[in-house]
């Protein structure tokens, strides 16, 4: 099962510079495990040590944010297109307060 994954600049050090890689899996968790097997270290940039989707990235299945599709449990199908974008966020708020607010 082939799923196309678009990788942002900041994570291309894990994919040998590739902008698009292929993976497999019937859920987002399975896909990320598959990607991590081929591109070691990628998982740690997408999933927190507690096992949740990292707040610093947005992951989309086709045109939907995975947070609206069950996050890591999102179901994937052959031919789906996954886009990973680094979240664009920040501001004057202190980091501890922002982290608490966002559950980083």
């Amino acid at each position: 099962m082939a799923i196309e994954v678009r990788v942002p600049t900041i994570l291309r050090s894990y994919t040998g510079g590739a902008k698009i890689v292929e993976g497999a899996g019937d859920t987002l968790t399975a896909l990320i495990d598959d990607l991590d097997a081929k591109h070691g270290g990628l998982k740690g940039r997408l999933i927190t040590p507690e096992g949740n989707l990292h707040r610093f990235v947005n992951i989309y299945v086709n045109d939907e944010d995975v947070r609206f599709l069950g996050a890591l449990d999102a179901k994937l199908n052959d031919g789906d297109s996954i886009t990973i974008l680094p979240a664009v966020a920040g501001g004057a708020l202190g980091f501890a307060a922002a982290a608490a607010l966002l559950g980083v």
Binding site: V57, A89, G90, G91, A92, L93, A98
Partner: peptide
């Protein structure tokens, strides 16, 4: 990529630095 700080100086906060994902 721009944003405003509305009560503090125009210098990246720790939050800005932690999130900065477009090198």
């Amino acid at each position: 990529i721009y944003h405003s700080h509305t009560a503090t100086e125009a210098f990246p906060s720790r939050t800005d630095i932690s999130f900065a994902g477009e090198p």
